[in-house]
């Protein structure tokens, strides 16, 4: 007991040396080292994604007939590809597409899913039943396959990938947020809000939605990794990003497969970049889920 108090006393100095937010982050890093690694990976990737184009060592699209399939050396750190283009440059620029697709589709799916989930759970009735049948039907498809089908219908473009991913992932958000809304409906403060005459929209926006936020965060971080993998898979299969956009998935397709065993660096670096980013998102998501929603732990 005395020992505990002493530790507590040590833990809370009279004058905080660091600001509250920073200390919170340090505590997070101590409790969840893997999660903190994830954050570090994501911050680094975000920085590369933003300032990447100004720090590339070579021209991303310039083919060089004298530098075809060079192994990694001190000019081309990651080597060059079949057309003599610098792999490092292309890996740096590929981060943009992965992050852009991941973040924008996540925001789109989370927004749509929140609106549909909250209203569906709040109003119930026929509207809820119809929405839930749609959710069930969409969830029946394996996500990569649905993505392929949607891309076949929409045509290849970056925005169509985002649209497809938003359609595929909205049901996941809807399902979770609807469940949370259903349990929130019975809570006294919602009843109180209704008693004092708040409108339905006001209750949903100011009282229900903010309380679903933890779940939204959990589903978001759990989905972004899959979204990025699906984008890469689509680009790998040649139905994702158009050929003029540099994407990690596309860097592994086509000619790369033919030359891969002779020149593994053309595929290994983009593949590793993809794995590291998805790994970062997944471990960050796991840590966040453990903190925000202990019930889901280990799932």
């Amino acid at each position: 007991m005395a020992e505990e108090q002493k530790i507590q006393a040590l833990d809370t100095p009279a004058k905080p040396l660091l600001s509250g937010r920073l200390r919170k982050w340090l505590r997070f890093a101590r409790q969840k080292p893997l999660g903190a690694t994830g954050v570090a990976i994501l911050v680094l990737t975000a920085i590369i994604g933003v300032i990447g184009p100004s720090m590339t060592p070579h021209e991303p699209l310039k083919a060089d007939a004298y530098a075809i399939l060079l192994s990694p050396n001190n000019i081309y750190w990651f080597g060059t590809d079949v057309m003599g283009r610098d792999i490092l440059t292309r890996v740096i620029l590929g981060a943009r597409v992965s992050l852009y697709v991941g973040i924008v589709s996540m925001l789109a799916a989370a927004t749509l899913g929140s609106i549909i989930g909250v209203t569906s759970g709040y109003f119930g009735g026929k509207y809820d039943i119809i929405i839930q049948r749609f959710v069930d039907a969409l969830s029946a498809f394996p996500s990569l396959l649905l993505a392929i089908a949607l891309m076949a219908a929409f045509g290849q473009s970056l925005n169509n990938i985002i649209l497809a991913l938003a359609i595929i992932f909205t049901p996941r958000f809807t399902r979770v947020i609807r469940a949370v809304t259903l349990s929130l409906k019975e809570v006294p403060y919602i009843e109180a809000a209704r008693t004092i005459g708040c409108s339905n929209i006001r209750i949903m926006a100011l009282h229900v939605f903010p309380n679903t936020f933890a779940s939204v965060m959990v589903v978001s971080t759990a989905s972004v990794g899959t979204m990025i993998i699906i984008e890469a898979s689509l680009s790998f299969l040649g139905v994702g990003t158009p050929s003029h956009i540099i994407s990690w998935g596309a860097m592994l397709s086509g000619d790369t497969q033919a030359y891969f065993s002779g020149a593994p660096w053309i595929g290994i670096f983009p593949g590793m970049a993809l794995t590291i980013v998805v790994f970062g998102i997944n471990v960050f998501g796991d840590a966040l889920r453990d903190i925000l929603d202990p019930k889901l732990r280990g799932r």
């Binding site: 890469a232 790998f236 998935g249 592994l252 790369t256 794995t275 998805v278 997944n282």
Partner: peptide, 21 residues
């Protein structure tokens, strides 16, 4: 965790690489 983070096409390409080399 690594298995979850690696896209299946990358795993497959690595298998091909190991096999051929």
């Amino acid at each position: 965790i690594l298995g979850l983070a690696m896209p299946s096409f990358f795993v497959a390409l690595l298998v091909v690489l190991i096999l051929s080399v």
